[in-house]
Amino acid sequence: MDPGIMADEAAVMEESCGPPQTPLVAVTFQKNVHRKLKYLEAEPKALGVTQIGLSAFQIICASVFLTEGVSQTHSDIPMIISSLLVVIAGSVAVAAQNLHLPTLKACLAMQIVACCASIVNIICSLIKMDNILTFCWIYDHNFTEYTAEICHKIENAQSHFHAECVVIHTALLAISVTLAAYCCKVVNCCTPAPKVPVITVQAPPVQQ
């Protein structure tokens, strides 16, 4: 056999046995490992502490009104229970800063509960405002002019206070919706986990 042909065949065999050719640039899609950090963008510590503080304020005020007999039990008891749920939701929101997935899921569930609780509190506050408007007029025939004046001042103060409560519970509702939205993005209960493109650049082999 011709030595030249044998040399060509050996060169082809050596080339086929060499390392496989790989592209210099490869694009793959992988899960975003940093997606949990998005929860921290909501400032959960600040919002959670706000939930706890405002709800505790509402619980104290409702308890004082009940103790002094200037409020109605049928509207204050639901407000106290709902506010306690919001306090728990705020505590879980602060605890979820560790980005532990079960804690984030618990935070999402509690924030949904807090949304419902805030709506209940808004309704109760509106009911209390409506009841206050007739409180003094019922007893006017037994009041002196001085006591009637005091009663109307108390009535006006309570009316303003419950209007403020409506604003506070509306703010708590907005906070709960915000935290629930960020938890939903992290937990991915509504949509599949997003994938991000990863571009890999490989250096060409060095020629010997």
Rank of each mutant, 00 (worst) to 15 (best):
M1D: 15
M1P: 09
I5K: 14
M6H: 09
A11M: 14
V12I: 09
M13R: 15
E14F: 05
E14H: 15
E14S: 13
E14V: 07
E15T: 12
S16K: 05
G18H: 10
P19S: 03
T22Y: 13
T22V: 12
T22N: 06
T22A: 12
P23L: 15
L24W: 15
L24V: 15
V25D: 14
V25Y: 13
V25L: 15
A26L: 05
A26Q: 10
A26M: 14
V27H: 06
F29V: 05
V33Y: 12
R35T: 02
K36T: 02
K36H: 09
L37A: 12
K38Q: 04
K38H: 07
L40Y: 03
E41C: 02
A42E: 02
L47C: 08
V49K: 04
Q51D: 00
I52E: 09
G53R: 07
G53Q: 05
G53T: 09
S55I: 02
F57G: 08
Q58K: 08
Q58A: 02
I60H: 13
C61N: 09
C61Q: 12
A62F: 08
A62W: 08
A62E: 04
S63D: 11
E68C: 07
V70S: 12
V70D: 11
S71M: 15
S71L: 11
S71I: 01
H74F: 05
P78W: 03
I80K: 00
I81R: 07
L85M: 05
V86T: 10
V87M: 04
V87R: 01
I88V: 13
V92A: 01
V92M: 05
V94C: 04
A95F: 02
A95I: 03
A96M: 01
Q97G: 12
Q97Y: 05
N98R: 06
H100T: 03
L101I: 05
K105D: 02
C107I: 00
C107V: 01
L108E: 11
Q111S: 09
C116R: 09
C116T: 08
A117V: 04
S118Y: 04
I119M: 11
N121T: 08
I122A: 11
I122W: 04
I127M: 02
K128G: 02
M129R: 09
D130N: 12
N131S: 05
L133H: 02
T134C: 02
C136G: 00
I138D: 03
I138V: 01
Y139R: 11
Y139K: 03
Y139M: 06
Y139W: 11
H141T: 10
H141M: 02
F143N: 13
A148E: 02
I150H: 06
C151S: 14
I154G: 13
I154K: 04
E155Q: 11
A157N: 04
Q158K: 06
H160K: 14
F161P: 00
F161Y: 15
H162D: 06
V167C: 04
V167N: 12
V167G: 07
H169Y: 10
A174N: 08
I175F: 04
I175L: 06
I175K: 03
V177P: 01
T178I: 06
L179G: 07
A181G: 08
A181V: 06
Y182R: 13
K185C: 00
V186M: 08
A193K: 15
A193Q: 13
K195H: 06
P197I: 08
P197D: 07
P197G: 06
V198R: 15
I199Y: 08
T200N: 03
Q202P: 00
A203P: 04
P204K: 05
P205T: 09
V206M: 09
V206K: 15
V206L: 10
Q207C: 04
Q208V: 01
